[in-house]
Write a protein that binds this DNA or RNA. Sequence first.
RNA 1: GGGGUCGUAGUUAAGAUGGUUAUAACGCCGGCCUGUCACGCCGGAGGACGUGGGUUCAAGUCCCAUCGGCCCCGCCA
Length: 595
Amino acid sequence: MSEFITDKKRTHYCGKINISDTGKEVILMGWAHRRRDHGGVIFIDLRDREGIVQVVFNPHISPDAHREAHRIRNEFVLAVVGTVQRRPEGMENPAMESGEIEVMAHELEIMNEAKTPPFVLDDASADISENIRLKYRYLDLRRPEMQKNLLLRSKVAAAARQFFENNGFVEVETPFLTKSTPEGARDYLVPSRLSRGTFYALPQSPQLFKQLLMVSGFDRYYQIVRCFRDEDLRADRQPEFTQIDMEMSFVSENDIIQLTEGLLSYLFKTCLHRELEIPFTRLSHGDAINRYGKDNPDIRFGLELRDLTDILKTTDFKLFQEVIARGGIVKAIKIEDNKQLSRKDLDDLKDYVAEYGAKGLAWARLRTGPDEWTSPIFKFLKPLEVQHINERTAAKEGDLIVFVADSEGIVHNALGNLRLHLANKLNLIDREQFAFTWVTEFPLFAYSETEKRYVSMHHPFTSPVAEDIPLIATDPGKVRARAYDIVLNGTEIGGGSIRIHQPDIQAMIFDALGLAEEDVRLKFGFLLDALEYGAPPHGGIAFGFDRLVMMMAGVESIRDVIAFPKTQKMACLLTEAPSEVSIEQLLELSLKIVT
RNA sequence: GGGGUCGUAGUUAAGAUGGUUAUAACGCCGGCCUGUCACGCCGGAGGACGUGGGUUCAAGUCCCAUCGGCCCCGCCA
């Protein structure tokens, strides 16, 4: 070859070539995805981030290129000059986006060779254990599926910025090295070198800063920002994650809710070409718990919880009787399962609810006779009770009713999760659907058994509903918050509130939380001070950006939309972080390892 | 802090009751092949059975510990 192709410019992405390019000479650069050597003609599937195209090396067309093509192995980096041609009659590949055409190569340059990768970079063989994928993340990310996920992530972020800019929002960056505050999640700490024995904390969210920006008069703020929480991981939780954060002045709940609906429909329209139905449904927190057992209900299917406590108030059945006497409740889910669930399945359901603290699970199947059950508890119930339960659950012949009797918290937790479990098992979920719902009217406080005090349900800066303010001192559990969460398919993807802008109310809240005044001064003094200088009424919301993208991409794990995620033990398998540091580094920070 | 599950070739997996040379598929290497597209055909190489200890004449298999991946409970304002 007389000159290096690299001196020329790439003309097309592999995945972007189509029938309209027929006859054009193109210059492609990418990776050898797969090679099919027929002795004579050699086919190379060439891959770049936009897709795959078949390159043909024919000894009669270009003997030099064909000779060189023999050396090509998977993942070699290639530059190819060739002509786009329609494939011969009958040789089209409808499974391939570029399957109508191919590129007849004139020139080939092997720009780099590659070791045989530890796994095939093919979505068809993607069931590679995650530790291998994470160790070779740079290869895993070459897979078309991962490329698609991260490209979508980038698009969603860009569209969000566009939306906010179009609506008069200002992006302001807030510090990562900031102050540790009590309440909330465990902080990541960063030792200060200059001020021995003191620490910065990485932000759990920019909450306080965005409120200060409202005090500063920026009026509309947004940021796509990393947040850090040192808590245990789940499939949808990472120690560092990204929020789409926003805050507005001179607004109330409905302004935020409307703007959010506008944002989400814009994101879904521009990035997924899907129209969302707005406004989204709204559920009060109480209704969400009562009907679905959770404050993040999946409303794509039924199986709602029914309260039977009133029906069973005077029951003779000891087990229910005792639970109700202790202040507990009895709730049920009706399942139109057409006898799909066996006795063994029902035993498994009992084990399932045990994980959530339920001591048992009763069941009943409706038989043909009037109000007749096949059920271990049938003989303990009065005919009228059976009849009322059938009515309350609207159960018909063959339907199954499952009961949990326990304290309110356990019943809701157990049945709320059982509901999801059953819907999956019985295939009741429409996977194509995006079902949004708002959850509103949260309680401001929740009583913490472990801490023996009230804690903020949302955070301590959430405004109470005005008419409930007198209750803060007398009956904190009854105070409603001006808070709202947005839930998509049973996953909380965002939450926010109208904030407190009066210092006296903020002080009342800290008081109700049992925080000592000097401690509050020490931790939040700057916020209380700021509120004294003309803080406007304000409120906002923050979205879990990774979770949102995860739902939009239709993947099960948050790690599949994060380029370099951590494992459940918070390790990075690629860089092997965290790792030990030198004694000199520790000394400089005045740190000593104790254990 | 706790429960569950997994760890065998580069990868994904199979290996009853402990038994002599640890299987397969894909991948890899070599050969043949001009229309394949998960190309095909022929041949071949490749193993600390996660790690450490124990029981036993004998351990991938049984026991104990430990490391790691995943899922979950607690936790995550």
